[in-house]
Amino acid sequence: MFNFLTSLNEHNLPYPDTLHPIVVHFVIAMVLFAVFCDAIGYLTNNSRLFEVSWWNMCLATIAIFVAIILGQFEAGLAKPYEIVKSVLNLHTLIGWSLSGIIAAITAWRYVIRSRNPQKLPLAYLGVGLILTLIVGFQVFLGDELVWIYGLHTVPVVEAVKDGFLP
Score class of each variant (00 low, 15 high):
134 I>N: 09
70 L>Y: 10
117 P>I: 07
116 N>A: 12
112 I>P: 00
71 G>Y: 03
88 L>S: 13
76 G>D: 05
132 T>F: 09
102 I>M: 06
82 E>R: 13
137 F>T: 10
65 F>L: 08
93 L>T: 11
133 L>H: 07
89 N>R: 14
91 H>L: 00
106 T>K: 03
107 A>L: 15
105 I>S: 10
76 G>S: 08
119 K>W: 11
105 I>M: 15
63 A>T: 10
67 A>N: 02
85 K>G: 04
83 I>P: 11
106 T>C: 08
81 Y>N: 01
110 Y>D: 09
91 H>W: 02
117 P>H: 12
128 G>S: 10
78 A>T: 01
114 S>Y: 06
65 F>K: 07
68 I>P: 02
87 V>K: 08
113 R>S: 06
114 S>P: 00
137 F>E: 10
84 V>S: 01
92 T>R: 07
71 G>A: 10
70 L>F: 13
89 N>F: 15
103 A>G: 08
74 E>A: 01
109 R>N: 11
105 I>N: 13
90 L>C: 03
87 V>T: 12
94 I>K: 00
88 L>N: 14
100 G>S: 01
87 V>C: 07
123 A>C: 11
63 A>P: 04
69 I>E: 13
99 S>A: 10
81 Y>E: 01
73 F>Y: 15
122 L>M: 08
67 A>Q: 01
137 F>V: 10
136 G>Y: 14
88 L>I: 14
71 G>I: 07
137 F>A: 10
77 L>G: 02
84 V>Q: 02
114 S>N: 09
64 I>C: 02
65 F>G: 08
122 L>S: 05
110 Y>T: 14
90 L>V: 05
135 V>E: 00
78 A>E: 00
123 A>E: 13
113 R>C: 04
108 W>H: 07
79 K>Y: 08
115 R>P: 05
119 K>V: 12
115 R>H: 13
124 Y>R: 14
108 W>V: 06
123 A>S: 15
81 Y>Q: 01
124 Y>S: 15
106 T>S: 06
96 W>H: 14
86 S>T: 15
66 V>G: 06
